[in-house]
Write a protein that binds this DNA or RNA. Structure first.
Lengths: 230, 230
DNA sequence: CGTTCTATTGACATCATTCAACGCCGGTGG
DNA sequence: CCACCGGCGTTGAATGATGTCAATAGAACG
């Protein structure tokens, strides 16, 4: 049902592990890259910025959002490690979103020119990029469908299960984890009132399905959660 | 706001016009292609089918949808001429959707192997594909945002404006056009009850903002429609 | 240690769904 | 040609889920 793998592009097997991948990448004619650390609230790029690089989130988390005409921020996506960031820039070569970090995060910058070169050299890189973009499309659509045909509680459950899965993919506990985003962010993302989020969390907590302790969530009954999505 | 261009890949300038593009494509080492006509209700591919080709819709319209566990059909997208179809297949090389036609339509099949070859030969083709996929991502997100932060009337208005724009891009009237999908399809797509669709259309009709005559829609006051989205 | 952001809870209002009845239209068969 | 039927669309009344408003409390940050 929601066994969606995060988009992954393993251009350089060492990248998510260490900075030493730079050398390896050069040897294999793969894009050179530079790592950098950002802190909560910092911005990687803004809507309309020139699109000259892709980014791989090595650790931490971020939100990408657009700003509507009336100045309202609308979150389009949350990002977790091993997520390739910036794919929407290929459309008209400027970033369609802004991206800010939710916590201290490490990012790997992949220069676009070098990325193109790597794509030309390697069918593998090319296939991985297409796969990644294709996956983004499917992911978006999954989210869309889940919002369209689920009620508020189901949306929230689905959100929690997706988070759980993403943590799992990064070898973290999928039963106990911390929300790196505020309820405001969640409400914004899911298109609900924060009061509704709060009420639903409280309700599920008192039903023993989950445990809520500020930002820390424990999934006590995953089976029940999954079944509630039908 | 919603000046989203349809994804377009102009590999062969003649393609949308005639069958003679085949020869031209071969000369330029571009993907060979075969045209075919489908009628209302016919299926191009189904969820899980092997992904071995992309498709370009030359004329007509179609819907792509997934089938949920309980057998419910959920529409993910409507497609109009010059739309590149099947991009979600790159993820795991099977189609993630099913696609059926809403009316008599003409489709151009682009063999995947040849498409890969063309991508290798031509940076232009490669760039156009990336652009197209990137555009799909943005499109999805736009839809998502509009659903998330708009009420039922605004969603419907946005849907009509998007349709209008797509017709415009295909050199058809953007003020008067025919819906090729049923209200059931629209309701499904927008995540609303068909009764709500019906009521809203009636309401806007009686307010003189639009005219509704069965499947024919006339936008009488585009300015007002756009403003209602804020 | 106070200010600001974030989160919870209750009372109330409202928009959208659900259920139900009915009309329209096209196709099919007697 | 008419009668019947099924899919599509409209309309009304009642219900319910979710948003809004308001008050308060807790957490985070300087």
């Amino acid at each position: 049902m929601n066994n969606q793998l995060m988009p992954k592009v393993k251009i350089c097997g060492k990248c998510t592990l260490s900075r030493s991948c730079l050398k390896g990448c050069q040897e294999r004619k793969l894009p050179t890259r530079s790592h950098r650390v950002y802190h909560r609230g910092m911005t990687l790029y803004s809507e309309g910025d020139n699109f000259d690089a892709l980014f791989m989130l090595s650790s931490g988390s971020a939100k990408s959002f657009i700003t509507t005409l009336n100045g309202h921020e609308q979150i389009a996506n949350f990002h977790f490690p091993n997520s390739l960031i910036g794919l929407e820039g290929f459309n008209d070569m400027v970033h369609a979103h802004s991206l800010t970090f939710l916590e201290t995060s490490s990012v790997c910058r992949i220069n676009l020119q070098e990325f193109y070169r790597a794509m030309g050299d390697s069918g593998f890189v090319q296939a991985q990029l297409l796969k990644s973009m294709s996956h983004s499309i499917i992911d978006e659509q999954q989210l869309l469908l889940s919002i369209v045909q689920h009620n508020a509680e189901q949306r929230l459950v689905k959100f929690l299960l997706n988070l759980s899965e993403k943590y799992h993919q990064n070898s973290l506990s999928y039963l106990v984890f911390n929300l790196t985003m505020t309820r405001i962010d969640i409400a914004n993302y899911l298109g609900m009132a924060i009061e509704t989020i709060s009420r639903l969390l409280t309700k599920m907590h008192s039903q023993g399905i989950i445990k809520v302790n500020n930002r820390q969530i424990t999934l006590c009954n995953i089976k029940h959660l999954k079944e509630s999505l039908q």
